[in-house]
Simulated scan of single mutants.
Amino acid sequence: MLNQNLPEPELLKTLLQPLLEDFKYWFGRSQTFLENEKVSFLEPQQQSELLARVKQAQQEVSTAQLMFQATGGQVGIDMATLVPWHQLVTECWKVAIRFRSEQATQPEVEL
């Protein structure tokens, strides 16, 4: 449970810093996945657009991290910014889960 007696900047650091790191991690994994796998249930254009959205979100997260660090943790991030990032991470998870599920059900080819 969070200590509600923490000063506001410390509370921001406790919550926001790890959240931004999580976004950075998951967007990085999503980028690697989308660049290295052909996702059969997505049209190439759809996969390309998803990758572009991931890259854009990565830039936004990096900018937010820089601002947060530059101000010594004195600024927060509006929920209107966080919600689309969360939705994008969830969308990427769903694509990866479906991809792995379909990979697991495909018969192996013997050479």
Rank of each mutant, 00 (worst) to 15 (best):
P7K: 01
P7Q: 05
P7M: 04
P7F: 03
E8G: 00
P9T: 02
P9F: 04
E10N: 08
L11I: 07
L11W: 13
L12Q: 13
L12T: 07
L12R: 13
L12D: 00
L12E: 04
K13R: 09
K13T: 02
K13I: 06
T14N: 07
T14M: 01
T14P: 03
L15R: 06
L15V: 01
L15G: 06
L16Y: 05
Q17K: 12
P18Q: 00
P18K: 03
P18F: 00
L19I: 00
L19A: 05
L19T: 01
L20P: 15
L20G: 14
E21V: 10
E21K: 09
E21S: 09
F23I: 05
F23G: 00
K24W: 15
Y25H: 06
Y25G: 00
Y25E: 02
Y25K: 08
Y25A: 02
W26H: 10
W26F: 12
G28V: 07
G28Y: 07
R29D: 09
R29E: 15
S30M: 08
T32S: 11
T32M: 07
T32H: 08
L34H: 10
L34A: 11
L34M: 13
L34R: 12
E35K: 14
E35L: 03
E35G: 06
E35C: 02
N36R: 15
E37H: 13
E37T: 04
E37G: 02
K38A: 09
K38W: 02
V39M: 13
V39D: 11
V39E: 10
V39I: 08
S40K: 08
S40W: 04
F41A: 08
F41T: 02
F41V: 03
F41L: 04
L42I: 11
L42C: 14
E43G: 07
P44M: 11
P44D: 14
P44K: 10
Q45I: 12
Q45G: 13
Q46C: 08
Q46E: 12
Q46T: 13
Q47G: 12
Q47F: 05
Q47K: 01
Q47E: 15
S48R: 09
S48Y: 06
E49P: 04
E49C: 04
E49V: 05
E49I: 11
E49D: 08
L50N: 04
L51F: 03
L51N: 08
L51I: 09
L51K: 07
A52M: 03
R53G: 06
R53F: 01
R53P: 00
V54S: 10
V54H: 15
K55V: 00
K55Y: 01
K55D: 09
A57S: 15
A57H: 15
Q58R: 09
Q59M: 00
Q59Y: 02
Q59N: 01
Q59H: 03
E60C: 06
E60T: 02
S62G: 10
S62C: 04
S62N: 15
S62I: 02
T63H: 09
T63W: 03
T63F: 05
T63I: 07
A64M: 11
Q65W: 11
Q65M: 11
L66N: 11
L66K: 14
M67W: 06
M67V: 10
M67E: 09
F68L: 03
